[in-house]
Design a protein around this nucleic acid. Structure first.
Length: 339
DNA sequence: GTTATTTGACCTAC
DNA sequence: GTAGGTCAAATAAC
């Protein structure tokens, strides 16, 4: 598939994409970095975290690196020294993903007539939808869940091309797809990843929301890892459960000594923490302490000052990057006290 | 039993 | 006729 080098997104759309990506990676790092510090086997978590960060930053840098239509060539200041390049190829905003719904229906027709027109779909992909190309050494690590549906030897290449669609295509009608084409045999090998259509499955939004919950809610984080099915979320339980299972497999595991707290979390009523198993060590009391602190913090914005003051009382340094988020700092300090 | 992957066939644009 | 994208049955993994 030929990919044009032109960029047709508006400045506002490009900015929105960049902001979204940076915000996502910030939330991810903010949430998982304390876990990384206390994780018993941090390599896997670090790997996952780094890949997510690289992806989001790559997207953001690429968007910011695009010459704007209003800019003269003299202002085309490309950002060097990144080995990945992302090119937005089509003019239609990614949000326009509902169009292929009819195709989805057509695909389920039984028999040879089941397929309306694969080539027609391909043409639609090339002309009416967004697609963009990313070069990376970690083609499978982009924060989304994909299911492979095909593999093809491409003329003129030494490697097969793999075809993936969003795992939640059937559940949510998400039309996002991607193709992975290995480009060379270097160590590590470079891959060209072509994405088509933006996700409409809300997977990342969902994950971000959960991350936000757990970030502001250490007990909820534990509950998430220990008992994902118990989360009283909205009507999206299937996807939620799948995502949690996958995230659990990846990295979201707390040290065993943090498994003594459970909670009933209700987004409308706040956090209610109780200790199911009275701990013998002082760790649980510490954890309970900051969990309770968060419970209080939920009551109103005015308590944020209290939390920050307490964080300062714990020895926080104003220059400490964790101090950017008082909740995070509090969690971090208390976890450090557990060791 | 359920879910994911593999792989040959199918289909259409070029 | 060829190439590329997709389907779906068979198979593997969990």
């Amino acid at each position: 598939m030929a990919v044009a080098d032109s960029v047709c997104l508006s400045d506002e759309q490009e900015e929105a994409v960049a902001v979204r990506e940076v915000a996502q990676v910030y939330e991810l790092i903010k949430t998982q970095q304390p876990l990384l510090l206390v994780h018993q086997q941090p390599q896997q978590l670090a790997y996952s975290l780094l890949n997510h960060a690289l992806r989001a930053l790559n997207v953001a840098l690429s968007v910011m690196n695009q010459p704007h239509a209003s800019s003269s060539p003299a202002h085309d200041h490309h950002i060097p020294a990144i080995n990945m390049n992302m090119i937005n190829a089509e003019s239609t905003p990614p949000a326009n993903s509902s169009a292929p719904a009819a195709d989805v229906a057509d695909n389920h027709v039984v028999g040879k007539a089941r397929r309306s027109s694969p080539a027609k779909r391909r043409r639609i992909n090339c002309e009416d939808k967004s697609s963009w190309v990313n070069h990376t050494v970690v083609p499978h690590e982009d924060g989304y869940q994909w299911r492979k549906y095909g593999e093809k030897k491409i003329h003129g290449t030494h490697f097969t091309r793999s075809y993936f669609r969003c795992t939640y295509r059937d559940d949510r009608g998400c039309q996002a797809t991607k193709q992975i084409q290995q480009k060379d045999n270097n160590d590590p090998p470079m891959f060209q990843v072509t994405y088509s259509n933006d996700h409409t499955c809300n997977f990342v939004c969902k994950a971000t929301r959960i991350i936000n919950n757990t970030n502001n809610n250490p007990a909820a984080l534990h509950n998430l890892t220990a008992n994902p099915n118990a989360h009283p979320d909205d009507d999206d339980d299937t996807i939620f459960t799948k995502m949690i299972k996958q995230e659990q497999q990846a990295a979201w595991l707390l040290p065993p000594h943090l498994t003594t707290i459970s909670n009933n979390f209700d987004e409308t009523q706040g956090l209610h923490v109780h200790q199911e198993v009275p701990p013998s060590s002082s760790n649980s009391s510490v954890i309970s302490h900051y969990a309770d602190e968060f419970d209080h913090h939920q009551m109103g914005q005015q308590l944020e000052t209290t939390v920050m003051e307490e964080a300062l009382g714990l020895g926080a340094d104003l220059d400490d990057p964790y101090f950017y988020d008082p909740n995070l700092l509090l969690i971090y300090e208390n976890l450090m006290n557990c060791y």
